[in-house]
Design a binder for these strands. Structure first.
Length: 365
DNA sequence: CATGCGTGGGG
DNA sequence: TCCCCAAGCAT
């Protein structure tokens, strides 16, 4: 007789909780799902174009920030072939302010590819989607699950957080990604893959938040390992990231009547393809005198006037400090090679990143 | 696998 | 104020 045969008075329903979770999650979702502009109403078929567009915009970007941009885009380009017929510059102008501008270039390239190579319909498999510009592993899985109900679990930052807490994953990100992917897949319901994914994302966004998670409201709280240990807020594990070194530069704001001198940045790299006022390089340890030497060379220009103060801006990987110089150009002063005059009144329509809007506002203040 | 790539909001 | 972060991708 082995000790194992001893029976508990009341056998515990430790019912391999793994199988109960997907159902609990969907039940929670059916009551608490967020209403979002790109989501189909319950029972409705979702539009792959809207799912794709929203997923691209939502990469590293908050729902609140995306809202108005999504509405603008679908109003102007109601389907992927309409977007494919636009110009990249129109797309960049509409995207200005949302950040990560390579997304906008890839968005356009993707629309062209879907229009020309897929007859205007998105591929309905992860593999097919993954081959398109701007669509990586997460986005391919998300579109496949949400728009085409493929049985796959996309793993974004929300889901990494929820899963790493649920299973108390001690490994640090990003090394833990494969493990988390595997664990996340256990939360997929047999049907309703897209809802399973969106349920986890909503849970991460509204309950299982980075700070002060509302565990008492969580449908999975009963067998959340981190919560049982009261270590929720310490997950996911990740190495602290280092902040970049301050870079300095100068920006030159030249007006000609009611017009402003601008140019376009190179296609690739920081703020690729976006509009800017002429400026110096942005370098660590550069002094103002060195930066000023890079002022554009125009005939018929008034003296450069240094605006008091500086414009500061923080990019993901470095902070930036710009000194601003202004000057006025007479009558028909020609724009130097590669530059152009634009009316101040229509600046809002330009593909101006926010750092340049700050510079111009500071200069014209 | 590490790094580059925006911006605005919250604690 | 400062730091962290928010539905990642490309290289």
């Amino acid at each position: 007789m082995s000790p194992k045969s001893a029976r508990k008075a009341k056998s515990e329903p430790v019912q391999s909780a793994g199988s109960a979770r997907p159902t609990l999650l969907l039940q929670w979702y059916d009551w608490h799902r967020r209403r979002l502009p790109w989501r189909a109403a319950p029972g409705e078929t979702s539009d792959p174009y809207r799912v794709w567009l929203s997923e691209i915009m939502l990469q590293q970007t908050t729902v609140k920030a995306v809202g108005p941009y999504f509405e603008k885009f679908v109003a102007r380009w109601p389907d992927v072939t309409a977007l494919g017929r636009a110009s990249q510059d129109d797309v960049l102008r509409m995207w200005a302010g949302l950040g990560y501008y390579s997304r906008a270039r890839n968005l356009y390239a993707c629309a062209v590819a879907v229009t020309r190579e897929h007859g205007g319909s998105f591929p309905d498999t992860e593999e097919g989607l993954r081959a398109l510009p701007g669509i990586g592993p997460y986005t391919a899985a998300a579109i496949a699950a949400i728009a085409f109900d493929r049985h796959t679990m996309p793993v974004d930052g929300n889901i990494e957080r929820v899963v790493s807490r649920l299973f108390a994953v001690e490994d640090e990100l990003p090394q833990a990604k494969p493990l988390i992917q595997q664990l996340a897949a256990t939360l997929l319901a047999n049907s309703r893959a897209g809802d399973s994914a969106q349920a986890l994302m909503d849970l991460g966004a509204s309950i299982c938040t980075p700070k002060k998670p509302a565990c008492s409201l969580c449908p999975l709280n009963e067998d959340c390992t981190a919560r049982l240990q009261s270590t929720q807020e310490t997950f996911p594990r990740k190495a602290p990231k280092k902040s970049g070194t301050l870079r300095r530069g100068a920006a030159f704001v030249v007006t000609r009547g009611e017009e402003l001198l601008v140019r376009s940045r190179p296609e690739k790299g920081l703020l690729g393809g976006m509009t800017e006022v002429p400026g110096s390089d942005w370098l660590a340890g550069q002094d103002d005198a060195a930066a000023k030497l890079q002022a554009p060379d125009l005939k018929g220009l008034s003296r450069w006037q240094r605006k008091m103060g500086v414009v500061t801006h923080v990019f993901t990987h470095f902070p930036l400090e710009l000194v601003v110089y202004t000057a006025r150009a007479v009558g028909r002063t020609r724009a130097p090679e590669g530059m152009r005059w634009v009316p101040v009144a229509t600046l809002a329509d330009e593909a101006l990143p926010n750092v340049m809007r700050k510079v111009i506002a500071h200069a014209l203040d």
